[in-house]
Amino acid sequence: MKGVLLVNLGSPDSTDSKDVKRYLGEFLMDERVIDAPYWLRTFIVKGIILNTRPKKSAAAYKKIWWEEGSPLIVLSERLQAKVQKQVEVPIALAMRYGKPSIRSGMQELYDKGVKDVLIIPLYPQYAMATTETILVLAEELRKSFFPDMTLTNVPAFYNHKDYIRVLANSIKQSLEGKDYEHLLFSYHGVPERHIRKSDITKSHCKIDGSCCKTPSPAHEFCYRHQCYETTRQVAEVLNFEEGTYSTSFQSRLGVDPWLQPYTDRTIDKFGLEGMKKLAIVTPAFVSDCLETLEEIAMEGEEIFHEAGGEEFHVVPCINDRDDWAEVLGRWINEWVAKESVMA
């Protein structure tokens, strides 16, 4: 029997500092998030971050928390329910960090007799700290607890025509009737070393402004290339003129170089240069979360206003849009049909 596991990032159980601390500990101790030796990662996370950051992060979560709970969890559940109506195979929901866990999601499917699982990481672009960590953990859990289960996965869909169409439509509909001078595509940031580590050629990725545009097998796992390609394809679909849009990266941590240009500095620069009306979209996320709702929609707007900007339009993530649920349903049904023919 076949089944599907939708996997998103995750969220604390509540806005209480203890829950936030527990969540941050699990998240930041992941070797694919902070890819330092275990002893150093432990010192950084447990010795420094978890003694200073939980209270601040809890306050940020309180700003965006919904009555039903974490926006990311609620939106993921809504998407799951909509996709389930499109397909006949069971769909479970899991989070890489927090609850429901990937193990519990796999167990839910296993208890229903599912042995053939399609994993759908809810990340358009591939990165060590997103898609890779999900797939690695799922395989570890399979070997330990579900040895007769078969796992396959939907690859990064950053350039899939269906996803690009949904994203383009969401931008067009959100900004319809709004006056703006520039659209900023802001993606989650990662350290530059993650890009080099993911380079299967071990030589292509130089982060020099040209390597992402030069065809290479490295692009299959290159987060930076995939972000710029998502921007390029959406701009092409929406017929944007050159110079009316750009790409940046948000949420850096530590002192090592991360992907640039940085979103906060870009927003500030636009305001200082006299831009009055800015729109921003966050295509690294399928579901709105702390980064999109607080860091971008609240902090980003504050930065823009302080720099002299006036209007700041934020495009929601594609969340549980009907057209997005229909796309996922079609992908799943195509997988089921293909597998059935091959069986």
Rank of each mutant, 00 (worst) to 15 (best):
Met1Lys: 15
Val4Leu: 06
Ser11Cys: 11
Asp16Val: 01
Ser17Gly: 00
Ser17Arg: 11
Phe27Gln: 06
Ile34Pro: 06
Ile34Asp: 08
Ile34Arg: 10
Ala36Thr: 12
Tyr38Ala: 13
Leu40Trp: 09
Phe43Leu: 15
Gly47His: 06
Gly47Trp: 08
Ile48Ala: 07
Leu50Gln: 03
Leu50Ser: 02
Leu50Ile: 04
Lys55Gly: 00
Lys56Trp: 01
Ala58Leu: 06
Trp65Pro: 04
Gly69Cys: 09
Pro71Met: 11
Leu75Ile: 15
Ala81Met: 12
Ala81Val: 03
Lys82Leu: 14
Val83Gln: 01
Gln86Lys: 15
Val89Gly: 04
Met95Phe: 04
Arg96Tyr: 02
Arg96Ser: 03
Ser104Pro: 00
Gln107Leu: 05
Glu108Cys: 05
Tyr110Lys: 11
Asp111Pro: 00
Asp116Asn: 15
Gln125Met: 13
Thr130Ile: 04
Thr131Val: 14
Glu139Asn: 14
Leu141Pro: 04
Lys143Cys: 06
Ser144Met: 08
Asp148Met: 08
Leu151Trp: 07
Pro155Trp: 12
Pro155Lys: 14
Phe157Trp: 14
His160Lys: 12
Ser170Thr: 08
Glu176Pro: 00
Asp179Thr: 13
Tyr180Leu: 09
Leu184Gly: 02
His188Trp: 01
Ile195Arg: 03
Thr201Gly: 07
Ser203Pro: 00
His204Tyr: 08
Asp208Glu: 04
Lys213Gly: 09
Thr214Asn: 14
Pro215Trp: 15
Pro215Met: 14
Pro217Trp: 14
Ala218Pro: 05
Tyr223Gln: 08
His225Cys: 10
Val234Pro: 07
Leu238Asp: 09
Gly243Asp: 11
Val255Asp: 10
Pro257Ala: 13
Leu259Asp: 01
Pro261Glu: 06
Gly271Ala: 06
Glu273Gln: 14
Lys276Arg: 13
Lys276His: 10
Lys277Val: 00
Leu278Ile: 09
Pro283Gln: 14
Leu290Thr: 03
Leu290Arg: 05
Ala297Lys: 11
Glu302Leu: 02
Glu302Asp: 13
Ala307Ile: 01
Gly309Asp: 03
Pro316Thr: 07
Cys317Ser: 15
Cys317Val: 02
Arg330His: 07
Trp331Met: 08
Ile332Gly: 09
Glu334Arg: 13
Val336Pro: 01
Met342Tyr: 03
Ala343Asp: 10
